[in-house]
Simulated assay, not measured.
Amino acid sequence: MDVRRITITIAGRSYPLNVPSAEEETLRKVGKQIEAMIKDFEQNFDVRDKQDALAMCCLKLGTNAEVAQINNDKNIKDSTERLMNINQFLEELEK
């Protein structure tokens, strides 16, 4: 596995990371998204300091992840039910 050393800057601080090459682009993209979110919170809300902006980013990202998981679970449940119905239908056709 090829590991690369990169630096991600968030809220004015640099974070050196050793990451698999395959994850580098994703980490850089997420770092940029976090920076954009911080800037948005600072410009549009009463954010007193970087820690407040970071806390708001954490809440937003956590909420987005939870909603995505809930939707994914629902999609899996719906798909499973459909497949069971199709399977039942096919079994009845065989009779």
Rank of each mutant, 00 (worst) to 15 (best):
M1S: 10
D2T: 14
V3C: 07
R4H: 12
R4I: 05
R4S: 14
R5F: 12
R5H: 14
R5V: 11
T7M: 09
T9H: 04
I10C: 08
A11F: 00
A11K: 01
G12D: 10
R13S: 06
S14L: 04
S14H: 07
Y15E: 02
Y15I: 05
Y15G: 00
P16K: 04
P16F: 10
P16E: 05
L17Y: 01
L17I: 08
N18I: 01
N18C: 03
V19N: 01
P20V: 06
S21V: 08
S21L: 08
E24Y: 00
E24S: 00
E25C: 08
E25R: 10
E25A: 13
L27E: 02
R28V: 00
K29V: 08
V30N: 08
V30I: 11
G31W: 03
G31R: 04
K32E: 09
K32P: 00
K32W: 02
M37G: 02
K39W: 05
D40S: 12
E42T: 13
Q43M: 01
N44T: 11
N44E: 09
F45E: 12
F45M: 10
D46N: 13
D46S: 15
D46M: 09
V47A: 08
R48T: 14
R48W: 06
D49F: 07
K50H: 02
K50I: 07
Q51T: 09
Q51I: 03
D52Q: 08
A53E: 02
L54A: 03
L54G: 01
L54K: 05
L54E: 01
M56G: 05
C57V: 14
C58G: 08
C58F: 11
L59M: 06
L59K: 00
K60Q: 15
L61R: 03
L61C: 01
G62C: 11
N64H: 10
N64P: 00
A65H: 14
A65W: 13
A65Q: 12
E66S: 12
E66V: 11
V67P: 02
V67E: 10
Q69I: 11
Q69H: 14
N71Y: 04
N71D: 14
N71L: 13
N72F: 13
D73F: 09
D73H: 14
D73G: 06
N75H: 14
N75D: 09
K77W: 10
D78V: 15
D78E: 15
D78Q: 15
D78W: 08
D78P: 05
S79W: 07
S79A: 11
L83A: 08
M84I: 10
N85D: 15
Q88I: 11
Q88F: 11
F89E: 15
F89K: 15
L90V: 05
L90F: 02
E91D: 15
E92M: 07
E92F: 10
L93D: 11
L93N: 12
L93R: 07
E94T: 14
E94R: 12
K95R: 11
K95Q: 08
K95T: 07
